[in-house]
Design a protein around this nucleic acid. Sequence first.
DNA 1: GCCTAGGTCCCGTCC
DNA 2: GGACGGGGCCTAGGC
Lengths: 237, 237
Amino acid sequence: MFGRCTVEYDGRAASSLGAGNRLLILKPDGTALVHTDEQRTPVNWQPPGSEHRAAVRDGRLRVRSVRENPDERLDVRFDRVEQVSALPVTGGRSVDVYGSEEDLRHRILDEPELVEPGFEPAATERATAAGPVDVFGHDDEGRPVVVELKRRRVGPDAAGQLGRYVEALARELPDGTEVRGVLVAPSVTDRAGELLAEKGLSHVPLSPPASSTTPSGDGRGSTTAPERSTDADDGAD
Amino acid sequence: MFGRCTVEYDGRAASSLGAGNRLLILKPDGTALVHTDEQRTPVNWQPPGSEHRAAVRDGRLRVRSVRENPDERLDVRFDRVEQVSALPVTGGRSVDVYGSEEDLRHRILDEPELVEPGFEPAATERATAAGPVDVFGHDDEGRPVVVELKRRRVGPDAAGQLGRYVEALARELPDGTEVRGVLVAPSVTDRAGELLAEKGLSHVPLSPPASSTTPSGDGRGSTTAPERSTDADDGAD
DNA sequence: GCCTAGGTCCCGTCC
DNA sequence: GGACGGGGCCTAGGC
């Protein structure tokens, strides 16, 4: 729907939006989106699982979307409706994304020496008191190693996360066991690097594979994919 | 636009979506959104700042959206276009949200005793080597206190964040200065609670103000009508 | 430009 | 249901 409306939201937070022309999208799964002409993020919304209702109040259309847990309500009141469309969506609803953290894990399980020579993976998602460890294994001297994977450049939070896992594991292993921690990520910020150093953790610069296939080959360091010569022509206006 | 299309994305990651009817939204700020009939998150997109182009290739419409830094490209190829609309958006594009972390900060600056009796705020966003501290102050015995605010229930990450601030501040103050850390949030998870205990940090259960009605002197310019007598009528179907 | 952290984050997964 | 962590997170604010 498109038209002049006001939008009121109340739930986890609350907001109010004055009159203006906006696009309201109502999905059959209970999603509601209010979009203006800027930003990727809707100016107001309701997550899937909400219930949409429409009613006419004082001669105006009001669309209300409500959900529970948490209790939230979105009200869109229209002065004037410019357009309404019912669109029959078909086909795939999700995509497989290549270049995820999972792809990075596969890359490492295929070539453990990418972490370091002699590294031997033993488990993925190994449970600890602090949560599951991405890759758990042993180094060339048999010491336990916790590997935390990130698909992109990381900040202090990732260093903290790895530190928590290492500490949790050290606590659950026999007293005195030295547990090493390795952060595998394309790069780290300065502050994250300092934190890693403080905690005695290390960083291995490594990116997810550039494409879904070919676990070997370069990480997506700088240059773009050379192939994909698909239609080299540029589009008109 | 709505029609049968395929979608290819390549950039920070990569994805491919087979043919189907979807909604494509192109915004003048360079945003592109591809929505199916499920989920709040678009199945594919391009962030603001991208450049949209359209061209006909092999008798089919292709919409391409490209941006740089990072290099990313989204291609939507249409078999068939069911509908095209140009919608004149007007009016407000953003909302003031009530119940944010900022509101929680105002609440505490107005009533510091909510943190603890005798607490005296000294600064907000105080800079440390680990980043800015939400609220910095002193307790009834003059000890420095770091207050970290969260608008909702928090997990282990928030405990780690507060821990980093406390440690950074302890390092920059004279040797031996005891720095206290207080996490102000509606509630904490079990694991976060354990982490806080380990680090000698404490938790004060407190939420952002329920309504926009900031209790006395709001720092925010405007305030909406506080009551909002919710129209008691329920909508028809 | 990068870094840092908030968000009505959304979302899947596993307990 | 809650908890936990990933995400092409997005977005704002500093430096």
